[in-house]
């Protein structure tokens, strides 16, 4: 009984507290840089697509709302032929960002993406791709990967030695 009265008293005291509510459209809340909002695909510092279409984001996605298809340019560089996120299914959990080995897929502090038609929530690669590196300005996957691509031959990545000359028997 006493605890009930105490509860009532505590609740009554809340009459004199400030409301926590932020008056959203007029007043914008502060969003941390790591806020998990709209998903984008970033580019590496050289301006090329970072995504190598490894399918890990799709595998990590708990609602299976990412579909893509890998393809290759003529020099061995992988990129997605199409990359589709169905935001009407997306729960903005950020697993895709965690799974991404090339820091390509990133969640941004933007959540104002409502549509009257659900179909408009299907984002293709053109809608997702931004022109900068996003949160990570320096990383370039192909600088550390062993694969040769246009402009980076074998042995030219970070911490790689010259390709082996198989014709020599010298140690």
């Amino acid at each position: 009984m006493l605890s009930n009265i105490r509860t009532i008293w505590e609740i009554l005291r809340h009459s004199f507290r400030r409301p926590e509510t932020i008056q959203y459209p007029e007043q914008k809340p502060y969003l941390a840089p790591r806020f998990r909002g709209r998903i984008i695909l970033s580019r590496d510092p050289d301006g090329e697509e970072r995504c190598v279409a490894c399918y890990l984001c799709a595998a990590a996605c708990p609602v299976d709302c990412i579909a893509l298809q890998a393809t290759e340019d003529g020099y061995g560089r992988r990129y997605p032929a199409f990359f589709r996120i169905n935001f009407s299914r997306c729960i903005l959990c950020g697993f895709c960002e965690e799974a991404c080995p090339t820091l390509a897929i990133q969640l941004t502090p933007d959540y104002e993406m409502c549509e009257y038609d659900r179909q408009n929530l299907v984002y293709e690669k053109e809608d997702l791709l931004i022109s900068g590196p996003g949160k990570y300005p320096d990383y370039n996957f192909y600088r550390v990967a062993g694969l040769a691509i246009a402009g980076k031959d074998k042995g030219e990545a970070e911490n790689e030695s010259e390709p082996v000359d198989t014709h020599t028997l010298l140690p």
Partner: peptide
């Protein structure tokens, strides 16, 4: 209710 729950 909002007042007592610190809402508006």
């Amino acid at each position: 209710l909002a007042l007592w729950q610190d809402r508006r």
